[in-house]
Design a protein around this nucleic acid. Structure first.
Lengths: 135, 135
DNA sequence: TCAATAATAGTAATAATTACTATTATTGTT
DNA sequence: AACAATAATAGTAATTATTACTATTATTGA
């Protein structure tokens, strides 16, 4: 880290595990994963590190469906498919279909950082669950 | 309402005010607005009605930056510009630059509802505030 | 090795949202 | 217009995600 952040064991493992999974986990899902390697880590540490990693641009946070924030270590442009039922997010293959979408932006009034594209819908698991419930 | 929802005075005023403003308010911002017309309305009623209106497809909910959900009565395809500092969301003029972005979707595994596009950045107000703070 | 201090674990606090309940208002029917 | 059924309300309590706090521990540059 070039800023004054220290690379602790906790931060390294959190980042490693976030990079490994492709599920865009919530903080407590990641907490569950990381605890297998650092059993005494606390949820607050997971939150704090995710916050720091996001602030330094190392990971991204996602808010779409569901009430929990999610995290993504993949910084490349890609499209997310979010389920309105369970809140889970999957990556869509095929990369980013458009470039910087700031043609209509008044740059003096809005400083551009990034473009986000997502597909909203219902994932297969939730769909099947609804179908069995309805008969 | 064609479903079994009743059109109460509260619901009507909430919808009217949400349609009037163009700021994509949070539930409690809207609560403040609606209270001018219905002083004894409760915040829970605002939440419940926004929930019902969203469920019946009459409005949309937005989660991007900031920890509060926001609401939008404009169902037409349009791009949002979200500020990572204050969480406020503005509409970008110029309509929707791409169509249904589901070319890469496996329809059997994900039921398409909508495409959302947003620009992430820092709004003019927050930018100016940062500049004065830094000198 | 060591001093400075960033980060930790554990816990308490905060804030957004949801649930609960007795009462009120809407709506389809008469 | 009055009525019965019941959806929705106000007010409040509960829940849940996230953040703040604090004494202790671990990292890092010298």
């Amino acid at each position: 880290m070039s800023d004054n952040q220290r690379m602790t064991k906790q931060k390294r493992v959190i980042l490693e595990e976030l990079e490994r999974v492709r599920t865009h986990p919530t903080a407590d899902e990641l907490y569950g994963i990381v605890r297998k390697r650092i059993p005494r880590i606390s949820l607050g540490t997971v939150y704090r590190n995710l916050e720091m990693l996001a602030a330094s641009g190392r990971i991204r946070t996602i808010r779409t469906c569901g009430k929990q924030r999610r995290f993504d270590a993949d910084l490349s442009d890609h499209v997310h498919a979010s389920c309105i039922r369970c809140g889970k997010i999957k990556d869509l293959p095929g990369g980013f279909p458009i470039g910087r979408l700031d043609g209509n932006l008044d740059e003096s009034e809005f400083t551009y950082i990034a473009t986000r594209i997502e597909i909203i819908g219902i994932c297969g698991d939730c769909k099947r669950e609804e179908e069995t419930r309805e008969g």
